[in-house]
Nucleic acid binder design. Structure first.
Lengths: 194, 194
DNA sequence: CGGTGACTATGACGACTGTCATAGACGCCT
DNA sequence: AGGCGTCTATGACAGTCGTCATAGTCACCG
């Protein structure tokens, strides 16, 4: 059986948001990409584009949350390496056209304000997951939180830079520094705050 | 005398890109914001929207380059703190509506491919400036380069997150971690690579 | 069998888009 | 004074946008 139309539309919206951003993705693009009929949009999404953008942002966010949670089962250090690997192949596979759907929602305009808010929630969730794994290595909670934010922000920023530069070097450098940082602070004695 | 019309249009494009992104900014928005007449667009920018987006991305990029170069005259550590302060007040002053114009160009679609390329050039320039300042503290060039990329990517990523979350906490945490990182690696003996 | 709800299919609306043509106004150079 | 380049001003074009109404198809349930 094929994917139900509402689900197919959300999946297509995620894919198109990654490639073109929210503003550049029309509802006609979504129905064409998903193969549903144009009249079905307001049947499945009475709220129109904003409701679809919200659903797509949440789906993209929870997908990454799930991936992150799975990777972090192992170890924060290795998880970052695997996460960077994931994005590296995702970028190259798509010819640097596809980015992070949550980042696209974060930069969207006021017309899709609820999607932007959902992006904020997703970022918070990722930070929490990562902070929990870092804290498991013996760092104090506030330090783990700020290191986690640096990791998430660094990777998201590297995705931006890689897309603009058309190569994966920024992501590789950020990944290397993050691993060194976590290896130092988690693998041995934690340095004092001074 | 007022600012010449071409310059005014570029300035307006930068401002609108920061607030709404490239795709959501129409040429009519730009002429209205800058006060020039609609017929002047193709007089000043024969290449249409793509040429204007390119010019705006370059202007935004060189503005940040100049700011960064000035701040880095002092010290890499203090420069990062000042840079984070700059973005913190910029975000709060605009009610978290305005982001980085170069990031907006990096996430733009293929229709403004030249602007995306210009964003890549701008990112490279920022990384070089920052790496040079970090290397001045005695780190090897490749290490300075990867630390510099982490700093730029971390701040750009934090801007995304702050815009989505509606507060400046992510930027503050990233700034704190970056300063600690540079303070450790630059202020004292550089640790071995192992 | 009949009907009820989920979904498809098509067409239309007003508004907006990038683009361009045309015509007029201003100021500087000779 | 005359002319030319810079810029303004307005209107129009073909296309697309989000949105919605309407009609038709299909499957399932009593």
């Amino acid at each position: 059986m094929p994917r139900p139309p509402r689900e197919a539309m959300i999946d297509s919206a995620v894919a198109l948001f990654r490639a073109r951003g929210v503003a550049d993705t029309s509802l006609r693009d979504v129905v064409e990409h998903s193969g549903v009929s144009r009249g079905s949009i307001y049947h499945h999404f009475p709220g129109g584009k904003e409701e679809l953008a919200l659903a797509a942002t949440e789906r993209g966010g929870t997908f990454i949350s799930g991936l992150l949670a799975r990777l972090l089962d192992d170890d924060a250090d290795k998880a970052i390496a695997a996460f960077v690997d994931y994005w590296t192949s995702a970028l190259t596979a798509a010819g640097f056209q596809d980015g992070c759907p949550v980042a696209a929602a974060a930069l969207s305009s006021d017309e899709t304000a609820s999607a932007r808010a959902a992006a904020g929630v997703a970022f918070t969730r990722w930070e929490e997951l990562m902070a929990e794994a870092i804290a498991r290595r013996g760092l104090p909670a506030d330090r783990a939180a700020s290191l986690s934010t640096l990791a998430i922000a660094g990777i998201e920023g590297a995705l931006l830079i890689c897309r603009a530069q058309g190569n994966t070097e920024a992501l590789a450098r950020v990944g290397a520094e993050l691993r060194r940082l976590l290896g130092e602070n988690g693998g041995e004695i934690v340095r004092g705050s001074a």
